[in-house]
């Protein structure tokens, strides 16, 4: 079952790049700056998410996709359309994600994606503020007897294709004058099979992804993930550069989720607070004092819809990556700035 799914996924994947080129032969739709209008018109948002990335986008036990990236898609849909179910998920490989975004096949890309200059400058993705701060590191079997990445000379390293990891790994080994052999594969499933099957000495990737793989594999105690990050990898959702209106919404949806946490607005109390709060910041955020919605071209209750659907940023984090999830990650860098983390929101006014 899993295998057939993978085969289908891969077969589709191989065709996608071609299909995208093919899509360019289709008649031109008038759409410069009109993606947001199109989403409103058809009452649906297409969101590109990962294929099987625990904590970010993976099928939950009930068969529905869950993860912090999936939550961002839901937040977008509830802010724009008032309903978090009006999302079409498009699970894509790492290699295809920017092609899909550029060709307009997906409206929003929320796919554990690191913001880089090239992706913004040359590939025209517009990133919001990060929804997860991660860092690049290595996982090794305990039996290898390695205590730091500096002892990995001559190792075979499993790396994800189409990610920033290939370059990170190269930079790490090159800067230390060490040799290594890369084994590059396209999906986490293939990498897991290779690494846990003993094909590689080390598994290079971001802490959050490696922790997800380790949990899914089971024997958590047999593997070490080095806690020191070699690079900072700020994951952020993005939209394509030709619609400023959609970019504005995406950027402020992310800020609103963080701001809601700072103001202690939760999934449970958001409706009450919207009706009764006297705190001016809460009133402005939840639309009791109108203005924010109008500026973004949304209804004034967009934050209420959003938080009712997925909760604030902290709730989404704990549910998918933190204490409420199998990954059990600490908030760390992803805590609010008020608690020593990097998460902040620009003022929503």
């Amino acid at each position: 079952m899993k295998l057939t799914g993978r085969i289908q996924g891969r077969a589709l994947g191989c065709l996608t790049a071609l299909a995208m080129v093919g899509a360019l032969f289709a008649p031109l739709e008038a759409q410069a700056g009109k993606v947001l209008d199109t989403i409103k018109q058809k009452g649906n948002l297409t969101c590109g998410v990962g294929q099987a990335v625990p904590g970010f986008s993976a099928p939950a036990t009930n068969g529905e996709l869950a993860g912090i990236d999936v939550d961002f898609c839901k937040a977008m849909a509830s802010a724009i359309l008032g309903d978090s179910n009006k999302v079409t998920y498009r699970q894509t490989s790492y290699s295809e994600r920017f092609v899909l975004l550029a060709s307009g096949e997906i409206d929003v890309l929320a796919h554990d994606t690191t913001t880089t200059l090239n992706r913004e400058g040359a590939q025209k993705a517009r990133f919001t503020s990060p929804n997860y701060f991660d860092g690049y590191t290595f996982m090794v079997p305990k039996s290898l007897g390695v205590e730091s990445p500096d002892q990995l000379a001559d190792a075979t390293v499993c790396i994800l294709q189409g990610s920033t990891f290939e370059v990170n790994t190269e930079n790490f080994f090159k800067s230390r004058g060490m040799k290594y052999t890369p084994l590059v594969l396209g999906t986490w499933e293939q990498l897991d099979a290779a690494f846990f099957g003993g094909r590689c000495d080390a598994f290079g990737g971001n802490y959050g992804n490696l922790a997800g793989s380790r949990v899914a594999h089971g024997n958590v105690d047999d593997y070490i993930i080095f806690p020191n990050f070699l690079t900072l990898e700020p994951y952020a959702p993005s939209v394509y550069g030709d619609d400023q209106d959609l970019f504005l919404v995406a950027r402020w949806v992310m800020f609103a989720m963080v701001e809601a946490e700072r103001l202690n607005i939760t999934q449970a109390n958001v409706k009450d607070l919207a009706a009764s709060s006297t705190d001016p910041e809460v009133q402005q955020l939840l639309g009791a004092k109108p203005g924010n919605g109008k500026d973004l071209g949304l209804s004034e209750d967009w934050v209420v819809n959003m938080v009712s659907a997925v909760g604030n940023y902290g709730e989404s984090f704990e549910r998918n990556l933190g204490k409420g999830s199998p990954l059990k990650l600490d908030r760390g860098l992803n805590d609010l700035w008020t608690k020593g983390g990097l998460m902040y929101a620009a003022p929503l006014r």
């Binding site: 790049a17 080129v21 550029a102 040359a122 294709q161 990610s163 290779a194």
Partner: peptide, 29 residues
């Protein structure tokens, strides 16, 4: 070309990495 699937660095596997680093999809295809 199915080499991509098991990690043998054939033309398509290397090309996919190149495509990703540069964003040059049409050219690579």
């Amino acid at each position: 070309t199915l080499a991509v699937l098991i990690g043998y660095p054939d033309l398509v596997s290397v090309g996919n990495t190149a495509l990703n680093q540069t964003g040059r999809a049409i050219e690579t295809v």
